[in-house]
């Protein structure tokens, strides 16, 4: 594990306070994001980890105000970008932030490009929209976005259609679209999950490089602790729509405090010896429309007792910026 300097600016670039995104479905209200708070500093890489369905992706979409309509709705909280609350903006004002100040890389490179337009068109689109570039200048910028993502021969590649490219290439194009307008915040929502291991390593190195070159902040959503260790400065662990633990990467790996975090880390297979059976967490993640009373993790938690089942756990500071919401913290 390598330690990277944690950038701590005076005011965070992005600050999320008590964000709540609910889905109103026929089965009831699904609290996908239920009181999430975190902040991302300038030049910081912030990790968001958790199982599938814990609300990571909906948190990301909420940041861009692109929660699936009409069922999804951001019902509360603040999203401060450079001190401005994005939730208070009108729709057309919000559009000026998307793709320009905050960008996103989606998970699946095979489906996130539009099959009927050339990659050049798709990269140029936000540049034309936000920076009013036209003609030669526009294509030069699109080409340099491809060059930034190390796509060979970018000028020719601009005329290609997505189906003419491999999955790894396509994901670079998606990256180029996200970075074309030089945003301040990049959201990478499981951006490397669909790539195979070698391509994944290349892609991560590429993002690292862009991060250093442009000094942009990245919100890295993943369920892979290996990626967290390699990329992130700070990390938040999400469970059932809530952040259950937040710490610097080093602190989290060395002294995990929440039983869920401990269980997740135990589930990472060791590389240095063979195990008969991979460790797993008993039970299923809870249905988000009928959460258990008390702590949501209590039904699966080896340390839970009657208090955990009855009362919601408090947020306990472990050490400096390290906190967890739990009644029965694991003492490290």
């Amino acid at each position: 594990m390598t330690t990277k300097p944690v950038a701590q600016g005076a005011t965070p670039l992005l600050q999320v306070d008590d964000l709540r995104t609910y889905f109103f479905t026929r089965w009831g209200v699904v609290k996908s994001v239920d009181g999430v708070s975190f902040s991302v500093g300038r030049g910081e890489i912030f990790g968001l980890v958790g199982e599938s369905g814990c609300g990571k992706s909906i948190t990301c979409l909420s940041l861009m105000r692109l929660v699936p309509q009409p069922a999804g709705k951001i019902v509360g909280g603040r999203i401060l970008f450079e001190g401005r609350d994005l939730l208070k903006l009108g729709e057309s004002e919000m559009r000026r932030y998307r793709g320009r100040h905050i960008s996103i890389i989606l998970q699946d490179p095979m489906t996130s490009l539009n099959p009927v337009f050339t990659v050049g068109d798709q990269i140029a689109e936000p540049v034309r929209l936000h920076q009013r570039a036209r003609g030669r200048d526009l294509w030069d910028r699109a080409a340099s976005a491809l060059r930034l993502l190390r796509i060979p021969d970018p000028e020719t590649r601009l005329g290609d259609y997505p189906h003419q490219m491999s999955g790894g290439m396509r994901q670079r194009v998606v990256g180029a679209i996200a970075l074309a307008c030089e945003p301040h915040v990049l959201i990478a929502d499981e951006a490397t999950t669909a790539l195979d291991a070698t391509i994944q390593a290349q892609y991560l190195a590429l993002l690292q490089e862009v991060h250093e070159k442009k000094g942009l902040s990245i919100i890295f959503v993943t369920h892979d602790f290996g990626i967290v260790a390699k990329m992130c400065h700070r990390v938040a662990v999400m469970y059932a729509g809530k952040i259950v633990e937040m710490a610097s990467v080093r602190e989290l790996f060395d002294h995990p405090a929440h039983p869920y975090t401990v269980a997740l880390l135990d589930a990472v297979p060791p590389l240095d010896y063979r195990v008969e059976r991979l460790a797993s967490i008993e039970g299923q993640p809870p249905q988000l429309y009928k959460l258990p009373s008390g702590c949501s993790f209590s039904p699966r938690c080896p340390r839970s007792d009657s208090l955990c089942v009855r009362e919601s756990p408090p947020q306990v500071t472990v050490d400096g910026g390290h906190w967890a919401t739990c009644w029965r913290l694991v003492d490290a």
């Binding site: 057309s92 932030y97 998307r98 320009r100 989606l106 998970q107 490009l113 337009f117 936000p126 929209l129």
Partner: peptide, 20 residues
């Protein structure tokens, strides 16, 4: 997903629907 991405670019809903 590509419509989601088109929206994430900051395009207006009209462009998303009638073009993409």
């Amino acid at each position: 997903e590509y419509v989601k991405l088109a929206r994430a670019k900051g395009l207006s809903e009209n462009v998303v629907v009638w073009k993409h």
